[in-house]
């Protein structure tokens, strides 16, 4: 199935969780926030939320320097 990750269309397996998708793209879960279809997903739900066709994900990285 296809999802949109940070504005780009990506192929991924059916029934994949957000956490597995992040692993697939080697994204460190501790340094990011995920927005799924415009809603922020709490960190503890990343391992249980299953992605569906055409889901739109934005992965935003914590940046703290000044």
């Amino acid at each position: 199935m296809r999802i949109i990750l940070n504005g780009e269309t990506k192929e991924c397996p059916e029934g994949i969780t957000i956490e597995r998708l992040l692993d697939l793209y080697k994204i460190d879960k501790n340094r990011i926030v995920v927005e799924l279809n415009l809603h922020v997903i709490p960190g503890k739900e990343l391992s249980t939320r299953i992605l569906r066709e055409s889901d739109v994900l934005e992965v935003v990285t914590f940046v703290g320097g000044g």
């Binding site: 501790n30 340094r31 926030v33 703290g64």
Partner: peptide, 25 residues
């Protein structure tokens, strides 16, 4: 609303630890 709580300590490096392009700020 976006970043509900601070990241776990030590996981996000500071500019001191990771460097920063001078003109970026």
């Amino acid at each position: 609303c976006l970043y509900e709580t601070p990241p776990p300590p030590g996981l996000v490096p500071s500019c001191q630890e990771a460097g920063v392009l001078g003109v970026l700020p």
